[in-house]
Structures are given as C-alpha cells and as structure tokens.
C-alpha cells in the first residue's frame, strides 16, 4: 500500500495529497434511512423464521444478519467514507473468523466419514 497517502506530516512537501477538510459528515436523512432499513430487516428475519424454508432457514437468517451488520459497518461506523486501509482493518477480523470457522468445522464435518484404510486391511495388520 502507498504509505504516503495514509500518513500525514505537515512538513513533508508534496508527499501526501489528500487534504480534505475534516471528516465526512453524512446528512441526517442517511442515518434515518439506515436505521429504518435495519428495523425492516429485523421484522423480515422474525417473519422468515416462521416460514418453512427447510435447509435454507439458517442461511437466510444469516444472510439477513450479515446484511444488517454490513450496513452498520459501512454507514454507522463510517467505513464507507474511510480510506481503503480502514476497509482492510474492518474486514480482517471477519476474515480471520472465517478461517477459524472453516478449519474447525472441517474437522467436525468429516469425523463421520469412513476411514481411508478399508477395515479389512486393518485386520491384516
């Protein structure tokens, strides 16, 4: 990544270009829109729980939760207006969580599989 963009020392001539005045201040209506959307998604997730979705029940509930979390992160937590580096910081925790999930679950999900060595061979030993 380009170190000069994120860094800011006033005495470095021309070394950094993003002089914006203060933080991005979003309009009030944006916050109202986001919170309304969050309320709506909460209602949807509760309703969806009572609909017979079979195997899709959990993925739907999780997708809604991920969507809600994403708009909180992007708009309420201002990542939408932040530098690319802060997108990385915001995403890193979730990425690592995914590593932990997938590698832990690959153990539990494959425990019941048959043993790679056929049982007859074990008897021969």
């Amino acid at each position: 990544m380009d170190s000069t963009v994120e860094h800011s020392r006033p005495d470095v001539g021309g070394d950094h270009g993003d002089h914006h005045d203060g933080p991005h201040i979003a309009p009030m209506r944006m916050y109202v829109a986001i919170v309304s959307l969050l309320f709506l998604m909460t209602a949807i997730t509760v309703c969806a729980a009572f609909v017979e979705l079979g195997a899709f029940g959990t993925p739907v509930a999780l997708a809604i939760a991920v969507f809600k979390a994403s708009i909180v992160v992007l708009f309420f937590m201002h990542v939408r207006y932040n530098t690319p580096l802060m997108w990385v910081f915001a995403g890193a925790g979730f990425f690592w969580l995914l590593i932990m999930f997938s590698l832990t679950m690959q153990d539990y999900m494959t425990r019941d599989w048959e043993t790679p060595v056929p049982i007859e061979f074990l008897d021969l030993l």
Partner: peptide, 23 residues
C-alpha cells in the same frame, strides 16, 4: 457501541430463531 450492536444482530437469529417453523 456499534460493534456491540453487531454482535447482537448475530446473536438474535442464532439463539432465538432456530427451528421456529410450524412443522
């Protein structure tokens, strides 16, 4: 505070909304 909110956003469906289908 937003982070605490996000945790709850996941906790709610994962704890309260499993197997609520009428069948």
């Amino acid at each position: 505070w937003h982070f605490v909110d996000i945790v709850w956003i996941f906790l709610f469906p994962l704890l309260y909304l499993i197997g609520r289908e009428p069948w």
